[in-house]
Design a binder for these strands. Structure first.
Lengths: 138, 138
DNA sequence: TTAGCTGCAAACTATTTGCCCTAAG
DNA sequence: CTTAGGGCAAATAGTTTGCAGCTAA
């Protein structure tokens, strides 16, 4: 995943700075956690030494704008990021804020949406909110 | 839609204050716009005279927590609300922030999710982001 | 009567922005 | 050498919260 991200960065003409490489490494290593900016900042800082939170934000923003990574936006909690840009549903636990991937068993034809609703889809946001096994009991 | 909301409020033991009734009326009237708190505040204020923004927020929060209405959460723009709680996809235009409903042609069995992923879904958040017809050209 | 609601103001916090400096290509 | 990117500090803005009255039921 890391190499494919770097390849995309080169393709798009984005600079490969030590800070960016550290951010990507953390995102890839912890992608199962769907880390937020603060976690990425803390972990990447350990690797690179010199890093600011605003750099983390601007980097993740830019990469997400380029479709290299995916930003999961939330209102009540910090945004989360993932390297897996394949279409899937994110299961968001209301109890512990854990996020898990769920492989989509069905898929909607986006051409249908363009035709029926006259709407051109650029990205999808599919989430199920609820409770994971650990939090269900409480 | 308005009467069914009021019915649900009674069922849940929620008080029907003039402020709440005005908020509901606006939400129902403008539900196609998927209004935000500020629009609801402005419009409801015209109806009821005495109203504060924090009342709007607490009311919409509580109703959404009870599953009476649905809150669409965003990071970059204000949250939006809708009275239509049937499962559907919201088409969110990145150009003008317009939100449209799209009837879901397929549906995922939530029991499958519970079994396969051990995750108990309480609510769904299905959005396609992109550009509406007006914004597509720009 | 009283639990729940309203309203004001202050607080919160994740994110963004402006500006100047640094370094990647 | 040129311009994108990094870092700091300050600003932003939607939302929440604490608390002192109200009022719907």
């Amino acid at each position: 995943m890391k190499t494919s991200i770097i390849k995309k960065m080169r393709e798009k003409g984005l600079k490969l700075t030590p800070q960016r490489l550290a951010i990507i490494e953390v995102l890839v290593d912890k992608t199962h956690l769907h880390p937020g900016a603060s976690l990425i900042y803390r972990e990447a800082m350990k690797k690179v030494g010199s890093l600011s939170l605003s750099t983390v934000y601007s980097t993740l923003n830019e990469f997400s704008r380029h479709g290299i990574i995916k930003m999961l936006e939330f209102d009540k909690m910090e945004n989360r990021y993932e390297g897996n840009i394949m279409e899937h549903i994110n299961l968001v636990c209301k109890g512990c804020n854990k996020i898990m991937d769920y492989k989509v068993p069905v898929s909607i034809d986006l051409k249908e949406v363009a035709k029926k609703a006259r709407f051109w889809v650029t990205d999808t946001r599919l989430e199920y909110h609820g409770y994971c096994q650990e939090c269900k009991g409480k």
